[in-house]
Design a protein around this nucleic acid. Structure first.
Lengths: 150, 150
DNA sequence: GTGTTACCTCAAGTCGACTTGAGGTCAAGC
DNA sequence: GCTTGACCTCAAGTCGACTTGAGGTAACAC
């Protein structure tokens, strides 16, 4: 079987069919053709979707990810881009670690009210000054275990 | 001056007036009254906004943050909640660190194509299996330096 | 030949946190 | 008293990544 039905792809990757259509429309993946109405996909799309998931996890937008594939679907990833993103992650990690420590302190702080704790107050001031940007929405928590992870 | 105009609050905190109105509508902050049409705020709202910024930075939603204030505006933060959030941050940090390491590896990997690198392949597989959820949108990068940070 | 059903398209809706815009009001300065 | 302009309200728009829904089609089993 050299061609995969959209449902096969969904089953193998855990990515919903609606998302697969959406990705195709966006140019992130491509179907090899149709069988009647139905999209056919090359088996390689499975790995490609893995790469897309990875990119998303690393914080790349779908538009950025699209730029990581050659027209034929092969990945062509700029190494500088990866390094830049790694650096970015690093910065995020540091900020989050500081924040985590502060939260733990606040949780353990003996002051009757947080407003009376010096550490907490300076933390609040730091946040107010924009040192720690908000991380936005929660991840949608998608299907974490495809039916056949191979 | 015991009352602050909305513009004063904006100037002191760096939070746009539109956001202040939005927060009031959401019940996160409260005005003490009106001077004509104009909202008046107690000075304490400045610290409260700092706390809101902190909460956002820690990944709390506005709804969660609303629950952190007593009706009078004083913070009443559940310590367990803080600990839970700290744990959550910890988990995030670990995932991001692993991801960062992998990105660095991929950037430095000598294989001509990433698909030929074992480390990279296993990374892709992990991402595909949902081990590393996407972090969603970029932070909006707000005004990081209020006019009078005191 | 007919049904079933999994697929199709296209438009619209969702989520959270805000921003933007049109049209209105009123305190303060002249 | 009149202008000015900062403030007001309320509705709608934005952003990214998808999902949902209505209405249609065709491959396959019988």
């Amino acid at each position: 079987m050299t061609h995969l039905d959209i449902a096969d792809v969904a089953r193998r990757t855990g990515v919903p069919v609606s998302t697969l259509r959406f990705y195709e429309e966006k140019g992130l993946i491509a179907s090899t053709g149709r069988h009647g109405l139905r999209r056919q996909f090359a088996p390689g799309v499975v790995e490609q979707l893995g790469l897309i998931a990875l990119g998303r996890a690393a914080g790349f937008s779908l538009d950025e990810i699209r730029g990581m594939f050659a027209p034929d679907g092969r990945p062509e990833i700029d190494r500088e881009m990866l390094t830049a993103k790694a650096d970015e992650l690093d910065a995020t990690i540091h900020r989050l670690a500081a924040l985590r420590d502060s939260l733990r302190h606040a949780a353990a702080c003996p002051a009757p009210r947080h407003t009376e704790c010096t550490t907490f107050r300076s933390l609040v001031r730091a946040a107010a000054s924009g040192a720690v940007p908000p991380p936005d929405r929660k991840p949608p928590q998608r299907n974490a275990s495809p039916a056949h992870p191979s």
